[in-house]
Structures are given as C-alpha cells and as structure tokens.
Write a protein that binds this DNA or RNA. Structure first.
Length: 236
DNA sequence: ACAGCTCCCTGCATGC
DNA sequence: TGCATGCAGGGAGCTG
C-alpha cells in the first residue's frame, strides 16, 4: 500500500472531508473533490485526533496533518486493517458492489441469495457478500438468540427462521453499538475507552460455562475457521 | 461455482 | 524469571 499512500498523500493535500459513509465494516471518507479514502479497521484498527505534539504510540501507520496543532492518526497493531484511496464515488460503489445488505437494518428477503446453500449458516453470516457487518462474536450471539445451531445448513432453515435471524442480527448489533462494542482483549472504542457489551454476551467467550437459558455447559468448536460457541440443547 | 482451508500479524495467556 | 508455544480474528487468495 506504500505506493497508494504516497499518491494519497499528495492528492489529499488541502482536502476537506465532506461526508463519511459506512457499509458493513467498511468506512469511507468522501472529500470535497470527490475522491474517497476507504478505511477497513480490521480487528484492532482505530482512528484518533491527537495533538501534533503527542508522542506516536506503537503501530501508528498513517498520520494526516489536520492543521498546525492536530493530527489524525491511524493505529493498527495487528495490521488487519488498511486504508485505500479511490478516485471517485463510482470507484467506491464498484468496490462495495460485492457487499450484502448492511447488518444493522436487514431488509426482509435478505436471505434469498443464501437460502438454498448447503453451507453452514454461521459461514454464511460471516461472508460479507451475504450480510455486511457481522463478525464472529455477533454471528454466535444472533444464532443463540434464535435457537439455531451454527453448523446447520442454510438450506435447512425456514423462511420464518431466516426472518427471525435477520431481526436478531439487527438487535444484537444495535445493542452492542449502544454499549460501545465488546472489549474482549484488545478492541477499543473511539477515544480509547473499553466497550461493555462483553458483559451481555450469551455465548461468545463462554465455552464450558452454563447456558443462560438451560444451564447446560456451552459447546465450542471451529466452524468456518472461527471459534464458535453455542448450546447444543437450545440450538438445533 | 462453490465451499473450505491457510496465511498474514501481534499481544496476551499458558506451560515448562 | 524467562522463554517457547498456542490462540484470537477479517479477509485475500488458494485448493479441491
């Protein structure tokens, strides 16, 4: 990304951010000249406006000078995030065209592209082409809320179950957002504080602990390459 | 075409 | 105490 950022550095000189848009986990800063900075925070990426005199914390990858006194800094210890510059909004639309509907407000019928698939429902939820914005924690939580086993093939869900799952995804994401997210290890909300949603988690991170509904110990296994926790008794 | 696996990267927890 | 090892996850890219 070095070449791209060098180009962005020059093109962003004197630029003003006109608008900030989001779809799923993707963020875009639209400049007054129409160019776009696409930001992917990954797991550990964050932005912060800090005094220009502040020492650089470790893993600061990009610094934008806002004025004489302030800087916007992009910090990402695990480097799963990234920043890309695009020429205009058309390029942004092309880049985002493969993303599914946003998880915060799924339209009815959102499940049509995956309804006949034989893959596990958990794998489909993590696929940003199907639903944009669901990560590992919230996939497990939503499946727990509606009593669906993560390994269940999509094709074995009824339309009513898909509808309930869509509602649950929106509910759990909005609730987590209101709590500032889930700080399990390293995640930090804007400003550096910790989120509090981890205290409300029904299954994620609670393998072996009692199910909040039936008190039986929660199962843990790898599904779609990600740690997955669920109750074998309540979810089928 | 589709689905599953591997890798990237770093910090933290665990075990010896 | 200090070192080695394993695990965590989003998404690109590869494989079957």
């Amino acid at each position: 990304m070095a070449g791209a950022s060098r180009q962005a550095k020059r093109l962003l000189l004197g630029a003003h951010v006109r608008e900030i848009v989001r779809h799923g986990k993707q963020l875009a800063l639209v400049g007054a000249d129409g160019s776009v900075l696409v930001v992917q925070l990954g797991m550990t990426g964050s932005f912060g406006v800090v005094p220009a005199s502040a020492p650089c914390e470790p893993h600061t990858h990009i610094i934008w000078t806002l004025d004489r006194l302030r800087e916007l800094r992009f910090v990402d210890p695990r480097r799963f995030g990234g920043v890309t510059w695009l020429k205009d909004r058309h390029a942004l639309m092309a880049r985002w065209s493969h993303l599914g509907p946003d998880a915060l407000a799924l339209p009815s019928g959102w499940s049509a592209p995956i309804a006949a698939s034989r893959r596990a429902i958990k794998a489909a939820l993590l696929d940003q082409r199907a639903v944009a914005g669901v990560g590992n924690i919230y996939a497990d939580e939503a499946l727990s809320m509606v009593g669906l086993a993560p390994e269940r093939p999509c094709s074995r869900l009824t339309a009513r179950q898909f509808e309930a799952l869509g509602q649950a995804i929106g509910a759990v994401m909005r609730s987590a957002l209101a709590s500032g997210g889930s700080t399990i290890r390293t995640y930090r909300r804007m400003g550096g504080g910790a989120g509090t949603f981890q205290a409300s988690l029904r299954v994620y991170g609670r393998a072996g602990q009692p199910c909040v509904t039936c008190a039986r110990p929660l199962e843990s296994a790898l599904v779609a390459g990600r740690t997955t926790v669920w109750c074998r008794s309540c979810q089928s």
